[in-house]
Design a protein around this nucleic acid. Structure first.
Lengths: 116, 116
DNA sequence: CGGAATCCCCGACGATACTG
DNA sequence: CAGTATCGTCGGGGATTCCG
């Protein structure tokens, strides 16, 4: 901290956290990782999410170029969402997180209790 | 989504996000990465944080075995906080995030505007 | 010095209903 | 189908004050 180097790195970490944080973003990206999906497809896949929230999350992901929204030219009622190249580039990052996450779970479970 | 594999991975990602997410956790870990610190040292280093919040964050990090709290035996008023081995193991993960964070910043800046 | 206690604000997210 | 509108809840985190 204090020095510019660390501050800049913190900012970068914050950015990534914003992009995959919150209750839904990671799940949405995971769902779209398989294949492109329609709005209601996504909604069903995610389960509990409300349309309002799904819309907001998708808009945010669009702004960050992780997801691309496409309206079918002939039929405006068909909208598909898919990952962009940039979105796919998140994959190895996620993989790293998953790996450490598993390690972390072990660590926390085997030393004692976790509480929650 | 839907399949157990992906659900489990999402859970792992959630865990990591909980551990380094929020407004302060990453900054605290970054600060302790340099060297062990006392409570008020940490507080000054972080700047705006209130003691209440710092306490809560440290407790959480302790619970997760990322930080170790030690009271000096002779003088109970001296308390030091330091990263555990497990805490240090987060370093490469952070590095990955920083790397993608920089890429992301470029991506978002150069295609158009970011808005926020 | 290293916190604990109390009070409060605000943004994320949910529920429900409605629309082009 | 793919959203929008309105309202309500809940918890993270800040401000301030007090304590051993």
């Amino acid at each position: 901290m204090k020095n510019k180097q660390k501050q800049s790195q913190l900012r970068d970490v914050r950015d990534v956290l914003d992009v995959i944080g919150g209750r839904w973003k990671a799940a949405i990206l995971a769902s779209l990782c398989d294949s492109e999906k329609r709005f209601n497809e996504l909604k069903n896949d995610l389960g509990e999410i409300t349309p309002r929230t799904l819309t907001k999350e998708l808009r945010y992901l669009e702004l960050n170029h992780l997801v691309q929204r496409t309206t079918a030219p002939n039929n405006a009622v068909a909208v598909i969402y898919q990952l962009t190249e940039h979105g796919h580039s998140l994959n190895p990052v996620i993989a790293t997180l998953v790996k450490w996450g598993k390690k972390h779970r072990k660590e926390v479970l085997n030393i004692g209790n976790v509480g929650e």
